[in-house]
Design a protein around this nucleic acid. Structure first.
Lengths: 213, 213
DNA sequence: GCCAGAAAACCGACCGGTCGGTATGCACCT
DNA sequence: AGGTGCATACCGACCGGTCGGTTTTCTGGC
């Protein structure tokens, strides 16, 4: 196993600064940019090392394979999302405020790291078995946690249970996961406003309608 | 140009059986299945011809390139979606029923042709300039038409205008476009029920909240 | 009914080029 | 003197696409 599933979501590391030399980061940045721009298969290893201004030897010194780069990108994205989610949960907000905080935070964060999200949504299927399982498990944890938040609100009578929490989750996270295909940082609407609108829309549906309790 | 864009959407043809020989369809079917399963770059032309039980010569007799196969898949998907949309519009339903009909139809149709949708969402960026523009234009038409439906309801006072129609469209179509990443035909929930739940959820948000008019 | 000739359908060996990855060497630091 | 951090040259596999040729189907004259 790849030890990616620690107890805490990206908790403090014992010995910190060993991770990621400058060269390592340059490679990762270049890979991210090129993957987002041309896709994984459309990007050659040679292209990455040229963009990062290093040599192939350096790349294969730090990474096992091209797929390794992909996994690093995925992992950093999911780790950040789970950490943000954990932060909100730790604040112990009531359901409505919790859902709003999670959704707006997720949308803002996705907008801010749109390249990672783009690569993720487009090339996730390329991962090999073990890594695929690890990434999927993390994604599922996020999904289940969000759904649990909705369920909690439904049980408390704050949200209508006309629509199953699973379906609500699918709609909300579906919008977020689709962002890479249309969101542009220089677009007309700031991410923060978009986030507020979407959260407001989802909450309206959750609160409106026939409250069955 | 490939003359695939006739006047009517797949309407009756003057002299029919020229289009799509059995071999042509076998190739397209195999390509669709393999693209959905392994991705475009992960699928070799050799693999396609073996799966279709034809030879490479036959494939390049009917298609110009591997990319050609992709475009055919995209085009058939979008053509169907636009045709369905047109059918609903032609019925002249009031906004609420129109939105419901479009959404449930789109979700059911996407579930039914999930492989096409999967290839589409994953590999759209691979198209070259001219074809990319054509596909994007069709997608945009769908988006704008749907948004127009929402706007019409808002102007009529049937829908709340608390959330901009554009944002509503982003949420609704975002869910649909994300379906390929999780929907399974053998899943626990039939597509028809899912479609009803989602449409109900979106309509609740559209009708609920403070109606500003 | 038949046959010649043309056109469409199809075959499969082959090619140029690219790509991910490796082998080996060397400078520098400790 | 040995390990880390690279550089460079190179490899074998594979891939999309081509091309000369063969088979099958269609067409029209008789």
């Amino acid at each position: 196993m790849t030890d990616t599933a620690g107890p805490g979501p990206a908790g403090p590391r014992s010995a910190g600064p060993v991770r990621s030399s400058a060269v390592e980061r340059r490679i990762l940045d270049a890979a991210l940019r090129l993957f987002a721009e041309r896709g994984f298969d459309g990007t050659s290893v040679q292209g990455i090392v040229e963009a990062a201004e290093v040599t192939k030897g350096a790349l294969y010194h730090y990474f096992d394979s091209k797929d390794d780069l992909l996994y690093e990108i995925y992992h950093s994205l999911i780790a950040r999302q789970l950490a943000d989610l954990g932060d909100v949960l730790a604040r112990g907000l009531p359901p409505r405020e919790a859902v709003r905080a999670v959704l707006t935070g997720l949308i803002r964060s996705t907008a801010e790291h749109i390249d990672e999200a783009k690569v993720f949504s487009r090339e996730m299927h390329r991962l090999d078995g073990a890594r695929m399982r690890s990434v999927r498990a993390d994604r599922r944890r996020y999904h289940v946690t969000f759904r649990g938040l909705v369920e909690k609100g439904q049980r408390a009578g704050v949200f209508s249970d006309a629509t199953p929490a699973e379906t609500v989750t699918i709609v909300a996270l579906g919008m977020v996961n689709q962002m890479p295909s249309w969101y542009r940082a220089d677009g007309p609407k700031p991410a923060a406003r978009l986030a507020d609108e979407v959260a407001g829309f989802i909450l309206t549906a959750l609160e409106g309608g026939a409250s069955a309790r």
